[in-house]
Nucleic acid binder design. Structure first.
Length: 931
RNA sequence: AGGCCUGUGGCGGAAUUGGCAGACGCAGCGGACUUAAAAUCCGCAGAGCUCACCCUCAUCCGGGUUCAAGUCCCGGCAGGCCUACCA
């Protein structure tokens, strides 16, 4: 029936037809192509605006409604900025190497190259169906050899660089070599000092290798047998792998590392340069973990000095024992001296085999073994016992601590467990006596802390600390020291689906870089790419025997380094999934460049002074991706490859889109499809028991995942975009409620009806502008602009709805020829609507016969005079309660307002003849009379 | 255990700087149109009361600052996120 009566209604079918038509046209016209400097159509007069979405990882499951939240927001900003006259860069591409793709491939038995391409095609189709204004000519994937060629190239730059700690920046390692040669420095080879000129080439290379920013390090790594790979610290959550939640063990291994620790201070300091959420900066600062204190050396007879790091050198007099990590060299030294120490051997083995989860499960239970050696406390001169315990971590500080049980909870617990002496050296600031029951780590007043050379008794903690550091320096027992929690970044993975390292090994085990001109080192095709489940890391690339076993010439090593016929084997580890996303934003500036990873001019133009202008993505990347990318960027900055110290000027995290689930009385969750809505609530169909609606993450098991394909089919892309933005503040997490979509869908139908007669399809516009409507239109356009600038899309849409409601005439059904807006007004309204619902805006623009297109139009001008009223109704409070409202001319000053208000009969009646003691007048806001 | 964030109608949310709490939407109720329904349009709508109010109470709970507090401060409670033996 309704089809017959209103064949020209804006319904899902109509929306789908309009949207597909415009989408094909935008693609065919390359409508959102951003010209680079030098390209046709480029105008230097336009300011640039670089707006970026976090690199998506296309999964086989495709897009659910959570994915496009951020993309919709960036799309609105990008369309708006274009209308404001900016040259907008808004690109999209694919982060496609890495664990999930490989695991999916192993599961399905289809090669990751195939599944990944299929996932990308599906993602692209789904994004294009939402009408996003991406410059698709800049699209690339991390798996494209033309892309990872440059990922390898940047890695090589780090390989060929070292960190100059004096200049505090990265420099080419060739310069370090020159410097060492010039000064003929002494080089320590196996504990012997040899002058540089006397070193063999191999010794020289080995020495330089210890300085590279990308270096091969032998250290304890996080080994995850279930995933068949090692993981970075950042990839471990609660002692389990971030992906899959598998157990992780520590094991020493030779792996490629990045010297990110050299950048710790700058990564911390430069957080002040960026406009990022405070929480994200706090998380990064926390991860970098700067602490200030002292290094103190304790003498152990026969062994030498045992160095510790402490933030509380003021408690040195209270150090009654020491503890080293089970992996500490001192433990080996003790074992080497005394082979009968079976208890020690057992403890070391036991603690090594314990996964991090085990350690955390029995979190505060202290275990350990005495080493049977003593160290000399430099402050007291006492001999104190040295223990080993796994509560001391090899990876932090020096892997050894001085234990001050009176003032450290962990040391206190350990001392109580093993009956070690406890000495109070800090009394509470309020002068109260120490109870001896618990450790007190708060600052206080030093006590029991004096010797022949130094006394800090009576000093507050900060002064005591400073004095002790001074004494340590003077006496040669230690020095001031800054310690970071951040550790070097483990960059090798024992996986197939990743970028190969451009490096080979000769039969002596020395490594040699592949020459820049021989890149990319292509990932070999491999039929059996499954990870090898074993107790030892076994990279699958090892199976590509013909690829691995090659010659220096074949691999592309510079013939000055190795003769071309030298047999070499390739590195068989691959880079982690993070590699490609560390610099993709730079490649977008100049994606087709075949001579550089990004052209200098393109990089200077798009990155400008501060980098990407707006970067939107999830807060789950607050530490990992954002820290890694900043690190790569700073290396490139130091080496003169990019012009900004930071990559992302402004960062914003969209919230998570959640869904509803249902909870039984006992708290267990019921899948959505097993629940029925009844009067006043919901019941579980199977049992009839009543259940409560709760907010939950979208998950397959709860059957509450909503896909973009479903929503687009039912309502169209414009409605989908509008609802995503209308749900609530962009930063908040908010539940998807399919029922609510109808509201914004009805809004678009009203917009349509404002211009198109549903029965005839003819255009309906007002002949004359209504003054009130005109006023409202100016205000709407003004508010929408302001709201987009602050990413408050929800209130911008509310303003658009109000506008349409005001313009919709009750008479419309009766007299379709009388529209609510004139053509000129409609055109301006469509401009404001266009960033949010671009398809319907373009379509109506065309139908009302406006020139050009909605997306290319300039943002409509707002007349400031239209934003204020002649008269304002001001609330009048008496004793702080609103008792009356009085009309006051806008712009009236306080004295005039007071006069008008006091002469108002209503106010006089309420005052009952009393004269106000005081009148508080806030022009345009309110009046408060106190009597 | 510590750090950070959030808490407003039946629901999602608004209130940009301390200044009319609840914009806008969903769900609900009433009306117009219709034989009827759908759709559409108009209206009502925090709670209470002596139901039109200009009354009383209301922004998780308890205090405080202020002429004025959802907003600022202190102390709780609840939920979320992060970190978690980092010396």
């Amino acid at each position: 029936m309704s089809e017959i009566e209103t064949p020209y209604r804006y319904d899902a079918l109509c929306a789908g037809e309009i949207e597909s038509r415009w989408q094909s046209r935008w693609l065919a016209d390359q409508a959102f192509r951003a010209p680079n400097p030098g390209d046709p159509g480029f105008s230097i007069a336009k300011p640039k605006y670089y707006i970026l979405d976090m690199f998506p990882y296309p999964s086989g499951a495709g897009l659910h409604v959570g994915h496009p939240e951020g993309y919709t927001a960036t799309d609105i900003v990008s369309r708006y900025k274009t209308m404001r006259g900016f040259n907008v860069l808004h690109p999209m591409g694919w982060d496609a190497f890495g664990l999930p793709a490989e695991q999916y491939a192993v599961q399905t038995g289809v090669h990751p190259a195939v599944t990944t391409r299929a996932a990308i095609d599906n993602f692209r189709r789904q994004l294009q169906r939402l009408g996003f204004a991406y410059d698709w000519s800049r699209e690339f994937g991390t798996i494209d050899p033309e892309y990872y060629r440059w990922t390898q190239s940047i890695w090589l730059r780090a390989y060929h660089a070292y960190y100059d700690s004096v200049q505090q920046r990265a420099r080419p390692i060739a310069q370090l070599e020159e410097l060492i040669a010039k000064e003929n420095r002494m080089i320590s080879i196996d504990g012997v000092e040899i002058p540089w000129v006397s070193c063999t080439p191999m010794q020289r290379q080995a020495h330089l290798d210890t300085h590279r920013l990308a270096y091969l390090g032998f250290q304890t790594v996080n080994w995850c047998p279930a995933l068949g790979t090692v993981l970075a610290n950042e990839e471990i959550i609660d002692g389990r792998s971030e992906r899959g939640g598998h157990a992780v063990f520590r094991m020493p291994l030779r792996q490629w590392m990045f010297r990110i620790t050299a950048y710790a201070q700058r990564l911390l300091d430069d957080l002040a340069l960026v406009e990022w959420p405070d929480s994200t900066r706090a998380m990064q600062a926390g991860w970098i973990g700067r602490s200030e204190g002292a290094e103190v050396r304790f003498a152990i007879e026969g062994f030498g000095a045992l160095a510790v790091f402490t933030t509380r050198p003021d408690t040195l007099f209270g150090a009654t024992y020491m503890v080293v990590a089970p992996e500490h060299p001192l433990v080996e030294w003790v074992q080497a001296r005394d082979a009968t120490r079976q208890d020690l051997r057992d403890y070391v083995t036991w603690s090594r085999n314990r996964s991090d989860i085990d350690r955390q499960a029995e979190s505060r239970v202290k275990t350990g073994v005495s080493l049977g050696v003593v160290a000399r406390n430099p402050a007291t001169g006492e001999s104190i016992p040295v223990w080993t315990a796994d509560y001391v971590l090899m990876a932090y500080g020096t892997g050894a601590i001085m234990a001050v049980p009176a003032h450290d909870e962990r040391d206190f617990a350990f001392a109580k467990t093993f009956n070690l002496p406890i000495r109070d050296v800090v009394s509470a600031s309020d002068g109260s006596e120490w109870t001896g029951e618990v450790a007190t780590s708060e600052p206080g007043i030093a006590c029991n802390s004096r010797n022949d050379q130094v006394a800090i008794d009576g000093l507050p903690t900060n002064e005591a600390t400073a004095k002790m550091i001074k004494w340590l320096g003077a006496s040669g027992f230690g020095a001031h020291r800054v310690q970071f929690r951040l550790r070097d970044w483990l960059f090798s993975r024992q996986r197939y689906w990743g970028e190969p390292f451009p490096v080979v090994f000769d039969d002596r085990g020395m490594h040699f870089p592949v020459a820049e001109s021989s890149l990319p080192v292509r990932l070999p095709a491999l039929d059996d790419y499954a990870p090898v489940q074993s107790d030892h890391p076994t990279p699958p690339l090892g199976k590509a025997i013909e690829w691995v076993q090659t010659t220096a010439g074949e691999a592309g090593v510079d013939s000055n380094l190795l003769a071309p016929s030298t047999p070499v084997r390739r590195e068989i580890n691959t880079m982690p999934g993070w590699a490609g996303s560390c610099w993709y934003y730079l490649r977008y500036c100049d994606p087709k460049n075949s001579t550089r990873f990004v052209g200098k001019e393109a990089e200077r133009y798009w990155m400008g002074d501060r980098g990407v202008d707006l970067y939107i993505g999830g807060s789950e990347h607050a530490v990992l991706h954002l820290l890694y990318a900043r690190f790569w960027h700073k290396m490139l900055f130091d080496l003169g490859e990019v012009g900004t110290p930071e990559p992302f000027a402004k960062l914003f995290h969209q919230g998570m889109i959640t869904s509803y689930a249902f909870e039984r009385v006992d708290g267990s969750l019921v899948p959505t499809d097993q629940v029925r809505e009844v009067e006043g609530g919901w019941i579980e169909i199977a049992t009839g028991g009543s259940v409560k609606r709760v907010i939950a993450k979208m998950s397959k098991s709860l059957k509450n995942v909503v896909t973009t394909d479903e929503v687009v089919a039912e309502f169209g892309a414009d409605t989908m975009r509008l609802y995503e933005m209308y749900m609530g503040p962009l930063a908040d997490s908010k539940p998807w409620n399919t029922r609510d979509i109808a509201g914004v869908f009805r809004f678009l139908q009203r917009v349509w009806r404002l211009a198109i007669d549903e029965r005839s399809g003819s255009v309906t516009l007002a002949r004359e502008a209504n003054a009130d409507i005109e006023r409202r239109l100016h205000r709407t356009i003004h508010k929408v602009a302001q709201d987009i600038e602050r990413l408050a899309m929800n209130t911008a849409i509310a303003a658009l709805i109000e506008m349409v409601n005001a313009a919709t005439r009750p008479t419309q059904m009766k007299d379709p020829s009388d529209g609510g807006l004139t053509e000129d007004q409609m055109r301006r309204f469509l401009c404001a609507l266009s960033p949010f619902a671009p398809h319907i805006a373009e379509e109506l623009w065309l139908r009302i016969g406006a020139q050009g297109s909605a997306r290319e139009a300039s943002w409509p001008a707002v007349d400031p005079a239209m934003l204020t009223d002649d008269s304002i109704e001001m609330p009048v409070q008496i004793q702080g309660k609103i008792r009356a409202r009085v009309a006051v001319p806008s712009g009236a000053d306080a004295a005039e307002i007071e006069r008008i208000v006091l002469s108002d009969p209503k106010v006089q009646e309420l005052l009952e003849g009393r004269a106000p003691r005081k009148a508080i007048i806030v022009p345009n806001r309110m009046v408060n009379l106190l009597v």
